[in-house]
Amino acid sequence: MKLYKIETVQHINTTIEECWDFFSSPKNLQTITPENMSFIIQDFDGKRMYPGQIITYTLKPLLGIKISWVTEITHVKDNSYFIDSQLFGPYKLWHHKHFFEPTENGVKMTDIVHYALPFGYLGRLMNRLIVQDKLKTIFGYRRNKVEELFNSKV
């Protein structure tokens, strides 16, 4: 199994509390996901993030094909980090760590995603041709949306 890694860092002009409040609420996932992916939360208990929480959603990541995705929040430390892992979905493995660190000017947010695709060689080829660029586009959209929401305030 070939394991891939994406790491992004973004500085957010807000307090750790405001940052945590936004990112630890699963309902805000839709806000930071590109609209053309048709991201819809199907099942979520409405509670603030906690270990063991299950979130199910549908999205259309490629060619308008609707897929289901189920993630579990596996670890949470308030105002510091949370980790989600795919239980069911398009990846053979998806493990996403979200870190939040107070700084002099706000918050340093770091995302680290480890992922693997199914289908061996075909999966590696799909990553090279489609998946890695799609993920870069999604994280780029997220970066821009976070800039708009937090860093464009005067």
Rank of each mutant, 00 (worst) to 15 (best):
K2M: 11
L3A: 10
V9P: 09
H11P: 07
I12P: 01
E18H: 10
E18M: 05
F22K: 14
F23C: 02
S24E: 13
S25W: 05
N28R: 07
L29H: 07
L29D: 11
Q30P: 02
M37D: 11
M37P: 07
S38L: 07
F39K: 05
I40Q: 04
D45N: 07
D45I: 03
R48T: 05
R48S: 03
M49F: 03
I54W: 15
I54K: 14
I55A: 02
L59E: 12
K60P: 11
K60H: 08
P61L: 02
L63W: 15
I65Y: 04
I65D: 01
I67F: 02
W69I: 01
E72F: 06
T74E: 06
H75E: 14
V76Q: 01
K77F: 01
D78V: 07
N79G: 06
N79D: 13
I83D: 02
S85Q: 12
L87P: 12
F88C: 10
K92A: 14
W94A: 12
H98T: 04
P102H: 12
G106M: 11
K108H: 11
T110C: 09
V113A: 05
H114I: 00
A116F: 15
A116W: 14
L117K: 07
F119G: 08
F119D: 08
G120N: 05
G120W: 11
G123T: 10
M126A: 15
N127P: 12
I130K: 00
V131N: 08
D133L: 00
K134G: 03
T137M: 10
T137V: 01
G140L: 09
Y141L: 03
Y141E: 10
K145D: 12
E148P: 02
F150I: 01
N151G: 08
S152Y: 04
V154W: 00
